[in-house]
């Protein structure tokens, strides 16, 4: 078997898989996004041009969903970076049972989103939830309060995904050459200076990668928010998209919506990647 045949044997199935399950549906749904198609009817799809996009971009409810999602992404990803990086800093030193502690800290991100959602729903319960009991908050309604529900969901997401940021940060921290710290110590550099001039610049690229991944994931969050809260103030775009596509069966409209979300995720990711490249160049 020639090298070319072996290469083709490995590549062709993957390409075929990508075309059938990714590229084709992507293009097909792009076509649907310009129609009034509803999968629940036998009626043919009629071309409506940009009408769906216009409707969605002028619908105040959709903009509310985008605003909610933006808030959620900012709170959740910022929280994960602060907590995750903080934990990595603590673990990046010689402490007893370091391996065991690291493994235990990684457990939340290994759980299923649905399980985490159901557990945290119990933890937040105003009558018997341990959070209110522990904080002495009486019967405070975390998930029913319209001003708090979104932050309660974000807090759960921070708990679940901070370990991911911690893991990547830890890898970055352990890769920082020790002699830089030794040199800084000889120069009598303070810990503040060492952190901002040595640690952070060297770890920043890998933390940026964690931020890119977490932003993309937070933007797409569905299950956690769907399980935890009914509050319209916590209705993320993925939930609205699901309802539009599979409860209301507005197939054409929801395809357009999905494309708007896709463009936004790609745009945000591109901004991050550009920034990442800048950080790397420094």
């Amino acid at each position: 078997m020639s090298d070319l045949t072996i290469r083709n044997l490995f590549i062709i199935p993957t390409i075929a898989f990508l075309i059938i399950f990714n590229i084709f549906p992507l293009l097909y749904s792009l076509g649907y996004s310009f129609t009034d198609f509803r999968a629940s009817t036998n009626a043919p799809a009629n071309f409506v041009g940009l009408q769906n996009y216009h409707y969605l971009l002028t619908d105040p409810f959709i903009w509310r969903n985008f605003t909610i999602t933006a808030k959620y992404v900012i709170v959740s990803v910022t929280g994960q970076v602060i907590v995750g990086f903080g934990m990595a800093m603590l673990l990046n030193r010689d402490i007893p049972l370091k391996g065991l502690i690291t493994t235990l800290l990684l457990l939340p991100m290994m759980l299923s989103m649905a399980v985490v959602g159901l557990f945290w729903k119990l933890l937040y319960d105003p009558s018997f939830g341990i959070i209110n009991y522990g904080l002495g908050l009486g019967k405070f309604e975390w998930l029913a309060d319209p001003d708090v529900a979104l932050y309660a969901v974000a807090l759960t997401d921070i708990w679940m995904w901070s370990p991911f940021v911690m893991l990547l940060s830890l890898a970055g921290l352990s890769a920082v050459p020790k002699h830089l710290y030794e040199a800084a110590e000889i120069d009598r550099a303070g810990s503040f200076y060492t952190f901002f001039r040595i640690t952070l610049p060297l770890v920043a690229p890998i933390v940026m990668i964690a931020i890119i991944f977490r932003t993309m994931e937070a933007f797409k969050t569905f299950d956690l928010a769907y399980i935890l809260s009914s509050q319209p103030t916590a209705e993320l775009i993925a939930i609205r998209l699901y309802k539009m596509a599979f409860l209301e069966w507005q197939t054409g409209m929801s395809s357009a919506f999905a494309y708007i979300v896709l463009v936004m995720v790609v745009a945000i990711t591109n901004i991050y990647v550009k920034y990442l490249n800048k950080v790397k160049e420094r």
């Binding site: 029913a144 319209p146 509050q231 319209p232 409860l247 209301e248 069966w249």
Partner: peptide
């Protein structure tokens, strides 16, 4: 009507903030 789900979504979006959220 065939579009009942859209009517239901609108009702949920309007009623819930008033009843539960006091808006």
């Amino acid at each position: 009507v065939p579009e009942f789900a859209e009517l239901l979504t609108a009702a949920n979006q309007r009623l819930y903030p008033f009843i539960v959220g006091d808006e």
